[in-house]
Every structure is written in C-alpha cells, then in structure tokens.
Design a protein around this nucleic acid. Structure first.
Lengths: 147, 147
DNA sequence: ACCGAGGTTGACGTTAACGTAAACGTTAAC
DNA sequence: GTTAACGTTTACGTTAACGTCAACCTCGGT
C-alpha cells in the first residue's frame, strides 16, 4: 500500500545528484561511511543513504576530514548503548559543537575584514596632484599596502 | 623616540607563538604567502608578518587552501590599482564573502543537528520489558539507527 | 678548540581524498 | 552478435601541506 517501492538509486544517479563522482561514493564506502545494499554486484542506495551522503558532504564543506565524519556518523549509531558510552558520545558531540562555534567566529571575523576591505577599495580614488590614493569617505590617504 | 626597535621575531619565536613549526613558515614563504626580511641568511619577521600569518592561519581554519589564501592576500596588495582591476578585486571579495556565508549556514545546520542529537541521547532511557530505547521526554521509542 | 642552540638549504617521505586507467561482467538496443 | 552504457574490482598516480632528515653554517659561552 504505502511502502511499495521505496525508491533507490544507482551509483551514478546518486553521484550526480550530489555533484560528485561514482569513485567518490566507492571511496566513502571503503572508509566505512556508507554501506549500500547490493543487487548481485551492483550497489543500491536507499533514501537513508542519501541522507547520510548529504551529511557527509556538509561535513566536508565545513572542513571535517572523512575519518572525523566517520566518527560523527558512528555517534549516530550509539555504540553499544551503555550508559557510560552514551555519556562519552554526548560529550564528544558537545566538543564538536564548540569547535564549530569557534570556526563560525573565525568565519565572521573573516567576513568582516573582507567586507571592510571591499568597501575600502570601492571608495578609493586618486589624488591627481599628489599621485596618491585617498578614501572618498574619510579623505584619508591609504596607509599600509599602498600599490 | 617612537620607532626605535619595532620588535622582530626569529622563525622559531613566531612559529611557536602561533603553534606551528618553522618548517610551516618556510613552506608558506615558498608559496609566496610571506616574505620576511633577511639578516644574512636568517629570516627576520616583522609585526606586519605576524598579522599576515594570523590571517593565513585563520584562513586555514575556515577551510581555505594555501593558494586561495594567497589570492586573498594578493587582493590586499591591490594589483596595479587600475580602476578595472580594482572592480574585479572588489567583486572577488564579495564572492568570497558569499561563500563564507554559505559555509556559515552549513555550520549552523550542523550545530543544530548535533545539538538535537546530543540532547536526544542524553534523554534516552531503556524500557526494561521491551528491551528497547525510549525518549525520556516524549516517551517515544527510537526510530532509525537503533543500536 | 669545542659544543650546543639556533639558523640555513635541499630533498625525499607521508597522508588524505580522491583521479585515472586497465581489465572485466551484464543488460538493453539495434 | 556486437556495440553502448552502465556496473564491478584492483591498482597505481596525483595534489596539498607539510614532516623528517641530512649536511651544512655561525655564534656565544666555557
């Protein structure tokens, strides 16, 4: 009735859906990040695999290595479920969060500096007499890094 | 009076100040990211070099490659200062900003998911009868990824 | 004179994350 | 039946960002 054909994907389908190559997916499998089912030899990817892959790729975009991503995915598998183990898992989770927050701060700082700089050079003009660059807003001449 | 000894740094000083190795600094120099002065053979790093290095390392932390960082540093040197060139520079700047903002969104999404998950496993408890995990808050059993 | 602590330049090694190519099997189309 | 389009495994190649090591200089101290 409802779950007749849960929609699966071939390796190439899934790959170009996400803008990567089949080789990449096989590589992720070698690293234990995804384990699609098989029809004979061929890999069959499920909707869950899609979600996992999305996670992996976002992990990559924010700068994690494959093994780090592997660890994080392992967290989702909850280990053996013992209390202690779960406490460790939760703590690792929070570590990651802290690292990500620090990274976000870095990004914000970088954005700000780029923003300032972009505005600076957009507002720059030439003082014909002195042959020097000055800022249209403050009228100040350019300090460091004069061209 | 004011600028007597503008404070310089040896390679090792600067390196451990930033928690990297001298080799790393030489490598960055090979890639054209910093060009310290020389006293004979020895490298002498200035305060400006320090700032540059800080920029480089933050660039790394947010996931840029050395060559990308190189391009960004080149931006600061303003090319030859021609109008067109400066327009290009400013646009590239804004491109970078957009990329960084996208990355920040990714980070935020990842943080949120980790947060949710961390809370989930902290609130998890065992249903002795059924031998299954349920959530302390909702009372719901665990769905996907059961251990 | 000698040593150790710092510096230098090669140059080769390593790791991660794939790319690329070879050699092969399967299925659908012509 | 053969060609094309897909898949498979195995294995070597590549790039980035350094690590590591050798072989050397040079300076202040004892």
């Amino acid at each position: 009735m409802s779950g007749d054909k849960p929609k699966t994907y071939s390796i190439k389908e899934l790959a170009c859906d996400f803008g990567v190559t089949p080789r990449t997916l096989r590589h992720y499998e070698d690293q234990g990040l995804i384990s699609p089912e098989r029809q004979g030899q061929n890999r069959i990817y499920s909707a869950e695999d899609r979600v996992r892959l999305a996670w992996i790729l976002r992990g990559k975009r924010v700068g994690f290595s494959l093994s780090e991503i592997g660890e994080m995915l392992d967290l989702y598998d909850l280990g053996d479920g013992r209390e202690k183990q779960r406490a460790v898992t939760a703590e690792r989770c929070r570590d990651r969060i802290r690292a990500l927050e620090a990274q976000r701060d870095d990004i914000n700082a970088t954005i700000e500096e780029l923003q300032e700089f972009s505005e600076l050079i957009s507002n720059l003009k030439r003082d014909k007499k002195k042959g020097v660059w000055i800022r249209r807003d403050t009228g100040q001449p350019l300090q460091k890094y004069e061209p």
